[in-house]
Design a protein around this nucleic acid. Structure first.
Lengths: 160, 160
DNA sequence: CCATACAGGACCGTTTCAGTCCAAAAAGAC
DNA sequence: GTCTTTTTGGACTGAAACGGTCCTGTATGG
């Protein structure tokens, strides 16, 4: 199984809503109503997004949340990362050291690290603007290459 | 958080061991000893790998497990998939229908589906042979383009 | 001064996953 | 033919992680 946590999933929905909503800040209850999520849950997500600098907040009446940057400047990777404090990595032994005896000689581990890094790069190449964009509509100029673009352009080979 | 389940992680190690071990089958206790995992755990993993056709098994004395195909023909994606019965997908709403009210109009959901598909493709491009290969040694001919290769060659644009 | 809204942290409940065990069947060996 | 070795399938258990909730405090504007 390979999966994004539910909180990270929700976070992308929340961010997408804020990206689409017109200028000015939205309150947590507003966002909850719009996304169909519970207020405490949305609130928790919003707090983390503020702490990591993805959102700006304003207290008091007329307060609320808004994007700290343009949708084009916010990547999926940072949104996902904002939801957890652990370092990014698909497998445990590629995240933490000292879990396995034959760590030093394990080619699987080092290769998993490369793969994790590559997938992270892919997620970094997708922006909030991409996520909001309705891809179902046929377009004349498919400029955005989305996930696959970045690495191919640079001819990356997993760090070799 | 984006992570592979621990069982899937172990499965890659088990498969890597079998790929590296000389011809003939290995018993579950053998594999457990070699990988440092518990016998029941390894056994559970082996059963699933057999059921999905990645391994061949032989009962009785002189029995054991061995790869059903060449390491070059087994991808990371199928190993990971073998460990769970759920359909592949990074987010819930991209896996199952009917979880969200505004499913039909949600661009986030459809875009997540594309991203999931793309990452699946990346994992399909990595074979067991790649995983076993020691990448730390400097090589003269870096032919294997690993994760990033496949999609760039085909100029994929997430299904557009 | 009061109402509104965010901030931070603590806390609990539940699901999910990893891990274990047991009875059964198959396949050689003697 | 029987005994031993090994896989098979399922059920069961324990624990940890995660999602979700709540409470107290602080800032802001009317």
């Amino acid at each position: 199984m390979l999966r994004v946590s539910r909180l990270a999933d929700y976070a992308t929905v929340v961010m997408a809503f804020l990206a689409q909503s017109p200028g000015g800040s939205r309150t947590a209850p507003d966002i909850a109503a719009a996304t169909g999520l519970e207020i405490p849950t949305v609130s928790k997500i919003l707090k983390r997004l503020v702490r990591t600098g993805l959102l700006q907040s304003q207290r008091g009446p007329k307060g609320g949340y808004q994007l700290a940057q343009q949708p084009e400047a916010i990547s999926l990777a940072v949104i996902i990362e904002a939801m957890d404090d652990q370092p990014m990595g698909l497998t445990r032994c590629s995240q933490f050291l000292g879990l396995c005896a034959n760590e030093s000689s394990c080619s699987v581990r080092t290769n998993w690290q490369r793969i994790s890094r590559e997938i992270y790069r892919q997620l970094s190449a997708v922006t909030l603007a991409d996520l909001v964009e309705d891809m179902s509509a046929s377009r004349q100029n498919p400029v955005v290459t989305f996930v696959s673009g970045q690495s191919s352009r640079e001819g990356e080979r997993l760090g070799r």
